[in-house]
Design a protein around this nucleic acid. Sequence first.
DNA 1: ATGGTCGCGGAGCGA
Length: 258
Amino acid sequence: MRIATWNVNSVRARLESLLAWLEIRSPDVVCLQETKCLDERFPREELEGLGYQVAHHGQRAYNGVAILSRRSLEDVVRGIGDERFDSEARVIGAQIEDFLVLSVYAVNGVEVGHDRFDHKLRWFRALRDFLALRYPMNEKVVLCGDLNVTIDDRDVWDPQRWRERILCSTPEREALEGILALGFKDALRKFRQEGGVYTWWDYRLRGFERGWGLRIDHMLLSAPAFDACTGFEVDVEAREGKKPSDHAPVVATFGDPG
DNA sequence: ATGGTCGCGGAGCGA
């Protein structure tokens, strides 16, 4: 079983690249973020044509999350059951065989001290409460997505430059730590301890060409999922081509590496 | 400190 997560920055703008990537990599499950469209504009038929069942939770122009699965997709949950936050489409979950999969797009927060920064911290607390209520950690829980936070300075190309700035600040890292404290572990760190693994590069700074990256897309695993995880990679090549997303896909393998 | 590039939707907002 291979599970991927990818912030595509508009599923419609990225459809050609996404379809080509799915054909080459053929993951069993794909969590998408920033689909940026209503459900009726989601390219369902094209994805079903590649053998995927589709669950989408979208809105007009912003946000939007989806789960694609070549295996049976059941018990779809949209939102976190908190009306303070569910006007923005940021969370979708589903059961896929013995995995509980979540596709999450965290609040960005703009900058430290901004109104949206405080909103981001409150949103993380609400997400934590939702997970604590609905996701038994003795199951194989796979929380995927653009969490818009670096876990520590190994996830930052220039920690001095990014010190206490958005995506890297102590309050954000503590908010993410609140999720991890439920019992999740960072899939990457089962395999690699060194820094320099990034998933996002700013379009504006021409960050990819300069190696100016951050790791803000994560796969957080419950202990049973962590134990079952046999591989992890960031597909940096997908950030290279023409008209790329600003994020690279992350792919984890569970069970037989094949 | 500032600006830079995308995508949506058709001006300005969000990232």
